[in-house]
């Protein structure tokens, strides 16, 4: 192996001692020193390139909206034992926050023109049909849950359980508000996949909350 090859072999390793030996070799040889300088310039360019990239602005809203959609269903898990629930409004706020993020996206030409980001006609039809099925299933659950939720204001319901039912009602109202906002947004931007994701998450969230309401009727001392 020539000195030149030896120099670059040392520089290609991850061993700092190897880099020191390379510098020592180059210190006594102008040719090797020129090689070392060229190596250092290449690494400086690589480092500069690494430091220079900036993520596009719309990516933030997209990433956070994508995270907020599953977060809505994760937060719903806190309602599984209604007696420990404290952050229903915070959970509802997470969906509203997702709406705010969507509003930041605003159908800019860059977002709408990117291939694959929007739902094409067939996918749009499928998404609409899926949403209609969710809405129909929720309507059935609401009809069964309505009498249970009405007990929140029944004088015969004890205060603790009334508070739980009122919290469920507040939670459902917040989700309904979020659903209405997203659906309004989708009327102007029907192809925006991220909005569909948030809407689906809201439907799932509402379904789970309604199931919990029905669960309180089976297990508890209500009524």
């Amino acid at each position: 192996m020539s000195d030149l090859e030896r120099l670059h072999d040392l520089l290609a390793s991850d061993d700092p001692a190897g880099h020191r030996r390379a510098a020592q070799m180059a210190a006594h040889d102008p040719t090797l020193q020129a090689e070392l300088d060229a190596h250092d310039r290449l690494l400086a360019i690589a480092e500069s390139w690494r430091e220079s990239t900036v993520a596009p602005q719309h990516l933030r809203a997209r990433v956070l909206a994508g995270v907020e959609a599953p977060a809505a269903t994760v937060l719903t898990g806190r309602f599984r034992n209604a007696r420990r629930w404290v952050s229903g409004l915070a959970a509802a706020a997470s969906i509203v926050l997702a709406i705010v993020f969507l509003q930041q996206i605003v159908p800019s030409p860059d977002v709408i023109s990117v291939r694959g980001r929007l739902l094409i006609n067939d996918a749009l039809t499928e998404a609409s049909e899926a949403e209609a099925r969710h809405a129909a299933a929720i309507a059935k659950l609401e009809r069964v849950a309505a009498p249970i939720l009405q007990r929140a204001t029944d004088p015969s319901t004890d205060a603790a359980n009334a508070a739980i039912l009122l919290a469920y009602r507040d939670r459902l109202a917040a989700i309904d508000t979020a659903i209405a906002e997203v659906r309004g947004y989708l009327e102007d931007n029907p192809g925006l996949a991220s909005a569909r994701t948030v809407l689906l998450a809201a439907y799932i969230d509402k379904t789970l909350v309604l199931e919990e309401v029905l669960g309180t009727d089976e297990t508890s001392d209500l009524g």
């Binding site: 360019i45 500069s48 390139w49 990239t53 900036v54 596009p56 990516l59």
Partner: peptide, 12 residues
């Protein structure tokens, strides 16, 4: 590409 700006455009 937009969104991939370099502070040293020539070198990068």
């Amino acid at each position: 590409r937009a969104g991939s700006r370099s502070t040293e455009p020539a070198a990068g």
